[in-house]
Design a protein around this nucleic acid. Structure first.
Lengths: 354, 354
DNA sequence: TCCTTTGGTCAAAGCGCCTTGAAATTTCGC
DNA sequence: GCGAAATTTCAAGGCGCTTTGACCAAAGGA
């Protein structure tokens, strides 16, 4: 059933039917009702392909996942972010296009998306330190929103990000307040922008309290259970082991916990752990009381927000870039306790800008 | 740059240019080269929207994720499956459409996809016991492939599945061979088809050896770390606790391990654990030697296979339904060891049909 | 040499919708 | 009751591509 057939059935011109269905004012209300009823009755839905050609809009947004196809490409954070964004697209009847390509094909993928007109805009996930996608997209003129801020890029672009620096600054301060002095940082890969910001929050908090930075306490790697376990195991076995850990993710935290317990210590009593909790659907931080003390920010919510931002930008491509900095909340769980140093009076975090 | 402009530049008709680019035989080879060179030079790519309208094909495949938007919707298994499928689509230049909708909107989502012509086919993930999507899709005539077999449905449809029954049958036999008699099953939600098949493998293996089934040893729930932990904690605290666990996923297994270690026991020595390992990118079962003994089958690979199947079906919609049953391999890790009973001579698994 | 093939190219008609500009009809003011 | 304005409807021309059928030229067969 297409427009013409429906119009014929109604004894109306396709034009009128189209206008009636699309809510144009210049159509008699009685006619509109007749048309809407008939459309519903015959289960008529305008053909998307035709609409897209006629309007010149794709009504679709692209998410390009690139990486080593043999290994990791879809991490749980991407997945939840995508789920959040997908909700937002669905609400306005936009399609979400997922492109899975090898890293070498990434640039070509964006260019094709643009040249072939498959999408009106794209979402950039997992922003790197000096992400080449930002200049690329500006260059080819494809509207985009990035999840994360790329340092090193002078240009202004639209992003949604968590205040990673402040989150880890507060977490570090919290541990310092508890009397911890040897705090290990089990970070994500340092080429990821967020990992650098988290490290800077950690470093700055230590510096502000005059606690010496021990580079040996800083690890960086993929945010998997196993890599958290490995890092913690090594650190705990060393002389003068840390009394607290700052972990980049729920999975790392679980690995760290395993290492702690494997070494005969008890998490929360002997060793404190704070994780960054992305509030992932399938990696909940406990059911009622949080297992881990954590800086929490829902990545799914970030996806929703970023998607809405992107839709707005697509609607008004010449508007100024949009920014949204989300704050993570510090939630207290069972994984932290007093450290060995005399407990200093808690200082409120100074709300320094990141 | 569109076809007409390119044709004008080449002093050729749009027809010839189109045929040259699309590999039709009736065009002079010299002309074709000239056209291809010009297309490359001007970075011409045929507009997808126009192609889709002209050919009547969507060149796209849909994946509908439905669920409770407030809670879980994108689990790690879906994510990896999608990544695998996405690779296959990319290779043939098909778009992958991800629709994230509330459970109530699921049926409407499929109907719209069909009526609006957004996709040529859909993938059905997470097949339920008596999945309503199967008859729905057959009814509206949208080609599909399901990841999993729905029982209770008489109709024949295309699917890709793992031999879940055999996997758990073998795993159970393996534990029995090791001398375990009290084996707990920490299963996925029983409304999921695969969970039922796994249980049947477990039940049948016990029955074949004349080991009494203790319903108290069978748990079912979401496949999260926490739910695995909860289940194992309760079971281990009971009188006559199990000496071995069969877990539905890596995450459940991690939770079980935590409960085991939390109770002062050692996994692999005091208590054995076998998991079903979906070989997820971000939940690797150890780096070199597997941490868990496991029945392993890559869900990402399943995604690839299912996508290829779907593409084939789209290409030949009137062909017979396709089926593909994948076997999981049983890999030995560090989480299993001898049980309390006298060890029976290992019997090879009989290769019974599922 | 003339006629038939074959090869190479093209004009034009869709695909199903939106949108502009004009036409037909109704309504309203006086 | 008439002309002008407002309302309602419509015809036609795209959007950018594919595809059918026709055309023209060169090659081959008689």
């Amino acid at each position: 059933m297409n427009l013409k057939e429906l119009a014929a059935k109604l004894q109306l011109s396709p034009t009128t039917v189209s206008r009636a269905l699309n809510g144009y004012p210049e159509v008699n209300e009685a006619t509109r009702e007749r048309v809407v009823a008939a459309a519903r009755k015959h289960n008529y839905r305008a053909n998307t392909r035709a609409i897209r050609l006629a309007t010149g809009r794709a009504q679709a947004v692209g998410h390009v996942l690139s990486g080593n196809l043999q290994a990791e490409i879809m991490n749980p954070i991407f997945a939840d972010f995508i789920a959040g964004a997908g909700e937002a697209y669905s609400r306005v009847d936009y399609d979400m296009l997922l492109s899975v390509v090898p890293i070498e094909g990434e640039e070509a993928a964006y260019r094709e998306l643009k040249a072939k007109g498959n999408v009106d805009g794209v979402m950039v996930q997992g922003v790197l330190h000096n992400d080449p996608r930002i200049p690329l997209l500006m260059d080819i003129g494809l509207p985009f929103v990035a999840h994360g801020r790329a340092t090193g890029t002078a240009v202004d672009y639209s992003w949604v990000d968590v205040n990673n620096r402040r989150a880890f600054l507060r977490a570090t301060e919290f541990l310092l307040d508890l009397g911890h002095r040897r705090i290990a940082l089990v970070n994500g890969l340092e080429e990821m922008n967020f990992a650098q910001r988290r490290r800077s929050g950690y470093v700055d908090a230590l510096a502000a309290r005059g606690v010496d930075l021990d580079p040996g306490l800083m690890r960086s790697g993929k945010m998997t259970e196993d890599s958290g376990f490995q890092a913690a195991q090594v650190l705990l076995a060393a002389d003068n082991p840390p009394t607290a850990f700052l972990a980049a993710s729920m999975l790392s935290g679980m690995g760290i916990r395993r290492a702690i317990e494997g070494s005969g210590r008890v998490m929360g009593r002997d060793i404190s752990v704070i994780i960054f909790d992305d509030d992932l659907s399938y990696l909940r931080n406990g059911s009622e009381v949080p297992i881990f003390t954590a800086t929490r920010s829902s990545v799914r919510e970030a996806g929703r927000i970023a998607a809405e931002m992107l839709l707005k930008i697509i609607g008004d491509p010449d508007g100024p870039p949009q920014h949204r900095l989300l704050e993570a909340e510090l939630i207290i769980g069972l994984s932290t306790g007093p450290g060995p140093s005399p407990v200093t009076p808690p200082t409120s975090s100074q709300g320094q800008t990141p």
